[in-house]
Simulated assay, not measured.
Amino acid sequence: MIVHYIHILVGFNEHTSSFMRIGYARVSTFDQNLDLQLNALQNVGCEKIFQEKVSGTSKERPQLQMMIAHLRSGDEVVVWKLDRLGRSLTHLIELVNQFSDKGVSFSSVNDKIDTSTSSGKLIFHLFCSLAEYERNIIRERTMAGLEVARLKGKLGGKPKGLTEEAKNTARIAESLHKEGYGVKMIAAQLNKSRTTVYKYLAYRGVNIN
């Protein structure tokens, strides 16, 4: 992944009191080109652009973290498209709320969103509502699945040759993991050992770091 940022404004002084429009550009692989995003961000007046090449699902984004550390109240973060910033809708909302807490606005060139305007704030709040709706749906399905699993009793077995009931438990374990539950909590919810939960998650293709 690329671990550097570029200064567009010659002679920039990080201690200056003026507010900045700061860009963030990302592509998923090293063979992809950042030029399209960089040109767009420069055209809208970004004075500083952080850039990196890393998968959208990766939690390791050193340049994103560096950008956040550099933000000051009054600054504006700009991206080419929303999917360049967040790993998911939930992650995007977390980041924009983090910007807001710092007194920093956010805008997306292609999506015509600018949280410094009333209409931009309205659109973003709609995103927040959709994310909450999605979380509630997942939670309801997860709890319904847990109830079915409890009624059917303890489910065990190894990943290979799982019964249909065990496969259902594996799906429930995956849903709980997506909700942010740790392996220990999932094991307690399912009344399983942590070893079994790890096997279920591995069966569902979930990588545990």
Rank of each mutant, 00 (worst) to 15 (best):
V3P: 03
H4A: 15
I8H: 12
L9F: 03
V10I: 04
F12C: 04
N13I: 10
E14F: 10
E14D: 13
S17E: 10
S18Q: 12
F19Y: 10
M20K: 03
R21G: 00
R21S: 01
R21V: 08
Y24L: 07
Y24W: 05
Y24A: 03
Y24G: 06
R26Q: 00
V27W: 13
F30C: 04
D31P: 04
D31N: 06
Q32N: 11
Q32E: 14
N33E: 14
N33P: 10
L34A: 08
D35S: 15
Q37S: 12
Q37P: 11
Q37D: 14
L38H: 02
L41D: 03
L41C: 08
Q42L: 13
Q42A: 14
N43W: 00
V44F: 00
G45W: 10
K48Y: 01
F50N: 06
Q51D: 00
Q51N: 01
T57A: 11
K59A: 00
E60N: 12
E60K: 13
R61D: 07
R61C: 07
L64T: 08
Q65W: 06
M66E: 04
M67T: 02
H70A: 03
L71W: 01
V77E: 00
K81S: 03
L82K: 02
D83V: 08
R84G: 02
L85T: 01
L85A: 04
G86K: 06
R87K: 10
R87S: 06
T90G: 05
T90K: 10
H91N: 13
L92E: 05
E94H: 04
V96M: 04
N97H: 01
Q98L: 05
S100G: 11
S100N: 06
D101A: 01
G103N: 06
S105T: 15
F106C: 02
F106A: 03
S107W: 14
S107Y: 13
S107T: 15
N110Y: 11
N110P: 02
K112H: 14
I113E: 08
T117D: 05
S119M: 09
S119Y: 08
G120H: 09
L122A: 15
I123G: 00
H125P: 12
H125S: 15
F127M: 15
F127G: 08
F127Q: 09
C128T: 14
S129T: 14
S129E: 15
E132A: 09
I137T: 05
I138C: 01
I138A: 02
I138K: 05
T142S: 04
A144H: 11
L146H: 06
L146P: 03
E147I: 06
V148C: 04
A149T: 14
G153F: 12
G156E: 10
G156A: 14
G157E: 10
G161I: 11
T163G: 07
E165S: 06
K167A: 07
N168K: 06
T169H: 02
I172S: 00
E174I: 03
E174H: 01
E174Y: 01
S175G: 00
L176K: 01
L176M: 07
V183K: 08
K184H: 12
I186Y: 05
I186K: 07
Q189W: 13
Q189I: 07
L190W: 11
N191L: 12
K192I: 06
T195D: 15
T196Q: 10
K199Y: 15
Y200Q: 10
L201I: 13
Y203V: 02
Y203L: 04
N207A: 15
I208E: 05
I208A: 05
N209K: 13
N209D: 09
N209V: 13
